[in-house]
Structure formats: structure tokens, C-alpha cells
Design a protein around this nucleic acid. Structure first.
Length: 417
RNA sequence: GGCCCAUUCGUCUAGUGGCCUAGGACACCGCCCUCUCACGGCGGCGGCACGGGUUCGAAUCCCGUAUGGGCCUCCA
């Protein structure tokens, strides 16, 4: 994987990195990370660090040290000099250009697209070394592939037209080109390249939104790759086990945020209660919530079936950790008497636990001759400030008897107190 | 403009000449389950860009057109 350090790692590039990683891990090979920083003007200071953080969070570990393209400046200069001596390159206004062949075709068997051919007379003489001595991408990149023993180059389709140039350079130095696999781009819903206005595009943004790394990985893998005609949910290990280059499709894929949400929910629900609680605690801590950890852990099981992203937790279960806004407590018509009755009923419940609470409230509904659905709605609103919440009885248990009674009486206008 | 790449339900895809009256998943709609919301179950809607070939037979092979995209920088 060879990103340029010009900013945050875009999710499209992350998918390319993922294909590289899955392929390397599947084959028992190495996944290498190289920073293409030959264009020092555009380099962004923190980008190199952010790229690594992003890959690590997603679970993509690389082999060996991160390498930097500019570190090969001397080696590149030497090769360029030799090419000039051999007549395969020439000076042009201080720069060195490579002499591309004039006739015939340059072709390769792309692992994703099959055979691709370019007429050589369309290949311009590319600059190898700039007049200030720095190598260009189209020179340094193929040379590093050679020096690092890169066997497979899996990259975006925007590099297709660079490939014949790089192949000619590699052959000119007497080396064999690696195998190339050009994967398509990732698009937004409007068919344009995925960008900010479509939603989250950097790994960081997905992390802060509360996505689970293995779920995002699963989703990304399915963007342009499939295992068979029915398998959708796969763990990182399963992806590694099943991945192959020949099942990558060449056409561009549109990023579907709704499917990602669904897939994330599936992964989250499949977690053991302990794993789920651990992840939830970690997420909330990272996002700056100082909520009581033991209560978060007790709340975890009652939200696991309900939300599809950790980012929804504060809205969905925040009522357990902070006072609810009185404005949000608007009882439906005829709700107040029910809340008052519930208050009386719950005062007597001991222990104040879900099964006992349930028995009491169902008994109440029966006595009032109201359906449970109708009876519980005002109680839910009074206690949680919302018509939508985790299971009512479990929620009340976690809220505690005192707080529950306090909220019910506040909602009923204090009459119950 | 030149060169190159792509084109199956709204979306992700299965499909490599007969197994396809095109399968699965997300989304959407309906029903069931149900304390809300989810989950789950059942059902539905919906597609081979178009035109020519090749073949007994084409989503699958070939050609053309259209549409989308990439590159054409001393960017990567």
C-alpha cells in the first residue's frame, strides 16, 4: 500500500489497502506500507501518522518498517544516470526523461481486468528526475517495487494509464514487472467519487460515529469483492481465509451507508455480552463521556439488540446517566392518570427488579383495562423522555426505584407525590 | 480531443454458452412476533444500457453505439 501523505486516508484508499492486506494474509506473504512523499510541496505533516493510526484501528497490520519514497533519492539518481548513459533516457531542461518505445504495444495481464494493452506511440517520455534532483512518482514507485521485491501491486484504477510507463521503466533496468491488480473506485450515491458531502469518508469519522472495525472491514471487503452468491457476514479471519484476487469485480462500487449500518448492527449483536460492554465502554471513553462505567456495563445488554452503532448510545440510553429534559416529557392524552397509578404500584415493588416491575405494570394495565402497549407508553415517556427506549422494565430497574418514582411523579405533575 | 477502463434489481453482488420464466443481501412495501424501537419469520416490488452479429441456444463470446469514469503535470 503506497499512499501519498497529503491528508487523511480516504475510505476508498482504505479499501485498496484492505485488498492488499487480505491478499497478503491469505497467501502468507507480506503487506508493506510505503509513503509516497516525492512531492514534498503537498506533504501534510500529520498525515503519515494518521495513515498509520487509521490502518491500525481497522486492524490492518503491515510487515516491516514503513518506508519513505524520498529516502531512495540517491538510488534513483544513480539509476537515472545509468539510463542516460545507456541512451534510454535523456536530459531535458535540467530534468531527465525516459525514452518510451515508439512502436508496438505494452501490455500486461491485470489480475482484475484481464489483458490491458496500450499502444506505445501514445506513451510520452515521462520525467524520471526533476530539475531539482527529486525523482518523480512514476520513476520512484516502480523502482521501489523492484528493490523491495514487490510481487503484487494492488492499487486504484487511476493508475492504469501509469502502468505501461512503469513497466517500460522496470524492463529498461533489466527487471521483471510485478503482477498488477487495478481495483475500481468507490463512489457516492450520486455516482460521483465518494467525498465529504456524501457522509463520512475518513476512517476517523467512522470510528467516532461508533462503527465496529471488523464490521467496517466486512463492508469494505464486499465493495467490489464477494465470496459467493450468499455469504455476507464475515469476520476478519473468515475474510482472510476466503479472499482471492480473481473474485474482485472491475466495475466501480457505490458506498451504501445504510447497508454499512445494518452490517454493523449484525456484527455488534454477534459480540458476546462482555465483548460488547468492553467496546462500548472504550467508545464512550474515547468520545469523552465520563459516565459511570459499571452502569454502562449494566446498560450494555439492554441496548445490544437495539442500536446498530455505538454512536447511538448517548441518545438512546442517555436517560440513565443524566436528567431528562422536561420539555421532552409530553404525555399522550389520558397518560397522566396511568403514570400516577404506576407510581403507586411501583412504590410497593420489592425488589425493584425487571421481573417484579413487569408483573406490577402488567397487572396495572389489566386492572385499568388498557392494552400494555397503551399503558406503557406514558410510563416510558415519563421515565426516559422518549417514546423509543430499551425495554421498559429493565430500564426502570437500572434507573432505580427512587429515580423512577421521582420521574413519574414529576411527569404526572407532582400529584402522585 | 487522444488513449484506457467500466456497464446485471435504487444499492452491493451471484452468474464465465444450456442448471436463468436471472439467485442472494441492503433499502422499500405488506403481514406475523411484540411494552416502544430493534431483532427474527413470511411474502412482495424490482434488473441483464441499446443495436447488430456468432451459435441449435447468449446476461455470458465478437463488433458498434450510448452512458459513466480515469489519465494525458518536472502531482501521486
Amino acid at each position: 500500500m503506497a499512499p501519498s501523505p497529503t491528508g487523511f486516508l480516504h475510505i476508498g484508499n482504505v479499501r485498496t489497502a484492505l485488498f492488499n492486506w487480505l491478499f497478503a494474509r491469505h497467501e502468507g506473504g507480506e503487506f508493506r506500507l510505503r509513503i509516497e512523499n516525492t512531492d514534498t510541496n503537498r506533504e501534510v505533516e500529520e498525515a503519515t501518522q494518521q495513515i498509520q493510526d487509521s490502518l491500525r484501528w481497522l486492524g490492518l497490520d503491515w510487515d516491516g518498517d514503513v518506508t519513505f519514497q524520498l529516502d531512495r533519492l540517491q538510488d534513483c539518481a544513480e539509476i537515472a544516470r545509468r539510463l542516460v548513459e545507456e541512451g534510454r533516457a535523456y536530459e531535458d531542461e535540467g530534468a531527465i526523461r525516459f525514452r518510451m518505445p515508439d512502436d508496438g504495444v505494452t501490455a500486461w495481464d491485470d489480475a482484475v481486468r484481464g489483458r490491458v494493452e496500450f499502444p506505445n506511440d501514445k506513451l510520452e517520455d515521462v520525467v524520471l528526475v526533476r530539475s531539482d534532483g527529486r525523482p518523480t512518482y512514476n520513476f520512484a514507485s516502480p523502482m521501489e517495487d523492484v528493490w523491495d521485491g514487490i510481487t503484487h501491486v494492488i492499487r486504484g484504477e487511476d493508475h492504469i494509464s501509469n502502468t505501461p510507463k512503469q513497466i517500460n521503466i522496470i524492463r529498461a533496468v533489466g527487471a521483471e514487472p510485478p503482477l498488477y491488480a487495478h481495483v475500481s473506485h468507490v463512489l457516492g450515491a450520486d455516482g460521483k467519487s465518494l467525498s465529504k458531502r456524501h457522509g463520512s469518508v475518513t476512517v476517523d469519522e467512522f470510528r467516532h460515529a461508533g462503527y465496529h472495525a471488523p464490521a467496517l472491514m466486512n463492508f469494505l471487503a464486499l465493495l467490489g469483492w464477494s465470496y459467493d452468491d450468499k455469504t455476507t457476514i464475515m469476520s476478519p479471519d473468515e475474510l482472510i481465509e476466503r479472499f482471492s484476487l480473481d473474485r474482485i469485480v472491475p466495475s466501480p462500487a457505490t458506498f451504501d451507508y445504510e447497508k454499512l449500518d445494518w452490517l454493523n448492527g449484525m456484527h455488534l449483536r454477534a459480540l458476546s455480552p462482555d465483548e460488547y460492554a468492553d467496546e462500548l465502554v472504550k467508545f464512550l471513553r474515547d468520545e469523552g463521556y465520563d459516565w459511570d462505567e459499571s452502569l454502562v456495563r449494566r446498560a450494555a445488554p439492554i441496548v445490544q439488540e437495539k442500536i446498530e452503532r455505538f454512536g447511538q448510545f448517548p441518545d438512546f440510553a442517555g436517560f440513565l446517566f443524566r436528567q431528562i429534559d422536561p420539555e421532552s416529557v409530553t404525555l399522550p392524552a389520558g397518560g397522566a392518570p396511568v403514570v400516577t397509578a404506576a407510581h403507586e404500584e411501583l412504590e410497593r415493588v420489592e425488589p425493584f427488579a425487571a421481573p417484579e416491575i413487569e408483573a406490577a405494570l402488567r397487572g396495572l394495565a389489566e386492572r385499568l383495562e388498557v392494552s400494555p402497549r397503551k399503558a406503557f407508553e406514558p410510563i416510558r415517556i415519563a421515565a426516559t423522555g422518549s417514546k423509543v427506549s430499551p425495554g421498559l422494565f429493565e430500564s426502570l430497574e437500572l434507573l432505580g426505584k427512587d429515580e423512577t418514582l421521582r420521574r413519574l411523579s414529576a411527569a404526572a405533575g407532582g400529584a402522585a407525590a
